[in-house]
Computed example of a mutant assay.
Amino acid sequence: MHERENKPKRLIRFPTLVERVGLKKGAIEDRLNPASPRYDDTFPKKIKIGKNSVAWLEEEVELWIEQQIQRSRSV
């Protein structure tokens, strides 16, 4: 079994997302906006957790970071 399969699911809020991915608010919003030239369909999607609240699945954020590392090192 993989380590990720045993790990409990955890949601992270926007300030933690900013800290984890190293991008500012506007850069993250661009990656989430299909109309933006910087749209990234691999970027983790937000999850609605309340009427005015969203979060991201920590596991998806970590996987995206790993993909960015691999992509940058394979060039």
Rank of each mutant, 00 (worst) to 15 (best):
T42D: 13
Q67W: 06
Q67M: 12
Y39C: 12
L11R: 08
D40V: 06
W64K: 10
S74T: 11
L17T: 07
T16P: 00
E62R: 10
S72L: 03
Y39L: 13
L57A: 08
N33E: 01
E59I: 11
S72E: 03
L57M: 07
R73W: 05
R20H: 00
V54Y: 04
K9T: 03
I12V: 14
D41F: 14
D40Y: 08
N52L: 03
R10T: 08
E59D: 15
R73N: 08
E29G: 00
V75I: 06
R73C: 02
N33Q: 01
E29A: 11
E60R: 09
G26T: 11
I28F: 04
L11W: 13
R71M: 04
V18L: 13
E60N: 12
V75M: 02
T42E: 14
E66F: 10
R38T: 02
E59H: 13
G22V: 06
E60Y: 09
E62S: 08
T42W: 09
K45E: 15
E19R: 12
L63G: 00
Q68Y: 02
E19Q: 11
E66W: 09
I65A: 06
S74H: 00
F14R: 08
L11N: 07
I65S: 03
G26A: 05
M1C: 08
F43D: 10
I47C: 05
N33G: 04
A55D: 01
Q70R: 12
S36L: 13
Q68D: 02
I12T: 08
R20L: 07
A55F: 02
L11C: 05
E3N: 04
K48D: 01
H2C: 01
T42F: 10
R38N: 15
G50L: 10
S72R: 11
F14Y: 09
N52D: 11
P34E: 14
E60G: 03
V54L: 01
K48S: 03
L32R: 15
R20G: 00
A35Y: 13
L17W: 02
Q68P: 02
S36A: 14
L57G: 01
K7V: 01
R10C: 10
E19M: 05
K25P: 02
E62H: 06
L17H: 03
F14E: 02
D30L: 01
V18H: 01
A27K: 13
E66H: 12
R13T: 05
G26V: 01
L32E: 14
R71N: 05
E66I: 08
I28N: 01
L32Y: 13
Q68G: 09
G26F: 07
K45I: 13
D30M: 03
W64T: 10
T16Y: 06
K48Y: 00
R71V: 00
R31Q: 14
G50W: 10
D30P: 01
E3R: 05
D40Q: 05
E5K: 06
D30H: 09
V75Q: 07
V75L: 07
F14V: 11
Q68K: 15
D41K: 15
I47N: 04
R38K: 15
K25C: 06
G26L: 07
T42A: 12
K48R: 09
S36E: 11
